[in-house]
Design a binder for these strands. Structure first.
Lengths: 340, 340
DNA sequence: GTGAAAGCGCTAACAA
DNA sequence: TTGTTAGCGCTTTCAC
C-alpha cells in the first residue's frame, strides 16, 4: 500500500463515477447532495483514508488557520503560561500557533514579525519586548488586514484589542490582607519608576493603606532596579535596621521577596509572626521555600486564552470591529509567610 | 493606497508587458533572463511592495516550511529550553514551528499528531508523553513521508533520528566530583526502577564509585516514587539517622536535593562541610537557595537545536537517509553544596 | 441532485 | 531570452 500519491478528490470522483464537485460537496454534507451519495462518498473516503490537502484548501480560501505569537522569552514561567493558554484556545478553534521569540530585543521582534507576515498568518498575538517603543513593524499587519492583539506588555496608543493584568488590584489585595491580619507597618519594595507594572502595584499598596486610614513614611518605600534576590536582601536589611522597622513587607516580585525572607531568617526574625511577607507573580519558588511565600498570582493561562479568543473574533469579524480592552484580576495566594 | 488586492505576478506581467513566467523567473534571478529584464522586474516589485503569496507557493511546491513540535508540557524549564533551541535553529533555516502540548497524555498526543498531519507540516519533532507506549499515531507521519525526530523522551524501537542526554555521564561526573572532593560515603536517592533516566543515573553513580574502588551498602540507595521535596526530606532523614550515615548524597533531581538540604539545615548538619549534596536537572531553584546547589545541567537548548538540524537534514534528504542517534553530554555545575 | 468548468497564484516543461 | 501552456487540489458558480 504505497502512500506515494495522496488520495485526491479527483481520484475519488473517478473511482466512484462522480464529478469532483459532487465529491467535494458530499464530504461537506451539502444539502444539495442526496443522502445516498453522501454516504457513498464518505464511506469511500473513510475507507481509503482520504485527507484533504490543506495546502490547497488554504490557498483556495486564502486562509492558513495559523496564528502567530510573539513573546519576549519562552523560558519564563509567566510566558509559558500565556503560551499554554493560547495553544489551548486556538487548538479548540482549529488554529495552529506559530511561536516566535523576540528575546526582549526590538530588532528580533521586527525580524519575526516580518517572517509571520510572509507566512500569511491569519492573526497575531504579541507581548512586546522591553525595548519596543514604536510599532511601525506591527502596523504592517493591520495594513495587510491581519488582526493583532496585544497581551500583557502593551503599547497603549497602538489601537488593537488588549488583554492585561490588574496589577493595582493584585497589590491592593495583598496589602489589604496584611492589614487584616494585624500588620500595622507595611513597607513596600517596588520596581522602577518608569515601569507601568511597578507603578500600578505601588498604587495598589498606597491605596490599600489609605483605605484603612494608614500612611507610610517615605522610608518604607524602596526602589529596586533589577528585581534581584540581592536587592531584596539589602532593602530588608535597611528596613529592619532602621529606627522604625516595618512589621510587613510587600514586594514587587517573588524573587525580591525571597531575598527579604533570607535576610529575616538569617537574623532570626520570625516569619510570619514578627514580619509578614508577600511577593508578586507566583513563581514556583514560593511553594518550595520555607516558610512558603504568599504571593499574587498573575493569570497567564487566562491571559493567553482571552487574547486568543479576542483574536479569533477579530479574524472572523474583520478589522473594523471594536477593539476591546480586557483587564484580568490577579489573585492573592495566601501561604505561610503571612499570619493565619 | 488600498491594500485590498495583493499584487500578483500577473499584475506585474501585465503592467510591464511581460509573461508571468518571465516575471517569476526574473524575481529569482534565473540565468535565462537578461540583466535588464531582471532589473526592470525587481525594481517594479520593490517599488510596489510585491510580496509573493506563500499560500500559492507552498501549494505549488507542496511544502509548508512549517515543522511541528510535540512536547509534554510547556510550563517546564527543561522543555522551554528545548523549544527555544528548536525555534532558534528552525528560524535560521526559514522554518516556522507549530508547537503542541500532549500534557503527558497519550490521547492528547494522538490528537495533536492528527492536527499536525492535517496541516501538512514538513516534519515533526516529538518528546513523548509518559503514557506513550506505542507509536502507531506517529508512524502515520512516516507513511505520509513526513520525517520525525525524537528528542529526550524516546521509544528506542521507533526508528527515527533521536537526540538524548547522557544521563550516565552526568551522574558519573557528579559522583566523581564528590569523591574527588574527599567525600567517602556517597549515597544516592534515585528515581523509579522502570524509568530509563533513573536507571542511567544510577548506573553512573555505581560506576563512578566502582572506578574509585568504592562500594555502597544497599541502604545507601533510596528509591523515590514521585521525585518530591518531601521524599527527599524523608530519605535524608532515614539516611542520616542510620547507623552508618553517608557524607554525601547524590539526588536524581534538584527538587529531591532541596528536600535533602532542608532536612540537613534543620538538623544543623553543615552543607558542604559535613555532607555534600548534588542534584540533577539544573532547575532555577538551585541558584536561589542557600547554600546554592551543585547540579547536573541538561542541555535543553542544544537538544532542541540538534533535533531540528537532524530534522531539516531529513526533510532535505528524504526518509531513506540514515537515522542518526545523538547523545549530548550533561554538564556538572559545581556550586556551594560541595566542598571547594 | 449532479456535472462541467473556471480560477485561486505560482512554477516549470516546452515551444518559439 | 522570452512566451505559452498546463496543472497543483480544491471551491464555487452556473448549467443541466
Amino acid at each position: 500500500m504505497s502512500e506515494k500519491h495522496q488520495l485526491t478528490l479527483k481520484d475519488i470522483a473517478k473511482e466512484l463515477g462522480l464529478a469532483v464537485s459532487t465529491v467535494s460537496r458530499a464530504l461537506k454534507s451539502h444539502p444539495d447532495i442526496s443522502e445516498e451519495t453522501i454516504k457513498l462518498v464518505k464511506d469511500y473516503a473513510e475507507k481509503h483514508h482520504y485527507v484533504p490537502n490543506l495546502l490547497a484548501v488554504n490557498f483556495r480560501k486564502s486562509k492558513t488557520f495559523n496564528i502567530g505569537l510573539i513573546i519576549p522569552e519562552l523560558v519564563h514561567q509567566f510566558f509559558s503560561s500565556i503560551i499554554s493558554g493560547v495553544l489551548s484556545e486556538s487548538n479548540a478553534h482549529g488554529y495552529n500557533v506559530m511561536i516566535c521569540q523576540s528575546n526582549e530585543h526590538v530588532e528580533d521582534e521586527k525580524k519575526v514579525a516580518k517572517a509571520l507576515l510572509n507566512s500569511r498568518v491569519d492573526g497575531v498575538i504579541i507581548s512586546l519586548s522591553n525595548e519596543t517603543t514604536e510599532v511601525a513593524h506591527l502596523e504592517e499587519f493591520l495594513a495587510a488586514e491581519i488582526p493583532v492583539v496585544q497581551v500583557d506588555k502593551i503599547i497603549e496608543t497602538f489601537d488593537t484589542p488588549k488583554v492585561i493584568v490588574n496589577d493595582f488590584s493584585g497589590a491592593h489585595q495583598a496589602v489589604t490582607e496584611l492589614i487584616k491580619k494585624g500588620y500595622h507597618k507595611v513597607a513596600h519594595i517596588r520596581g522602577r519608576l518608569n515601569v507601568q507594572h511597578s507603578n500600578e502595584r505601588f498604587r495598589g499598596y498606597a491605596e490599600a493603606l489609605k483605605e484603612h486610614g494608614k500612611d507610610y513614611p517615605d522610608s518604607y518605600v524602596k526602589i529596586c532596579k533589577d528585581l534581584t534576590k540581592e536587592e531584596g536582601y539589602e532593602f530588608a536589611k535597611s528596613l529592619m535596621e532602621s529606627k522604625n522597622p516595618p512589621d510587613a513587607i510587600f514586594c514587587v516580585t517573588d524573587l525580591v521577596a525571597l531575598g527579604v525572607m533570607q535576610y529575616l531568617k538569617q537574623h532570626h526574625i520570625h516569619v510570619p509572626d514578627e514580619v509578614g511577607v508577600i511577593g508578586f507573580s507566583n513563581w514556583q519558588l514560593g511553594e518550595i521555600i520555607s516558610p512558603t511565600l504568599s504571593t499574587v498570582h498573575q493569570p497567564g493561562f487566562e491571559l493567553g486564552e482571552k487574547a486568543t479568543s479576542l483574536l479569533i473574533e477579530k479574524i472572523n469579524n474583520g478589522l473594523a470591529s471594536p477593539n476591546e480592552q480586557v483587564v484580568l484580576d490577579a489573585d492573592l495566594i495566601v501561604r505561610e509567610s503571612v499570619r493565619s
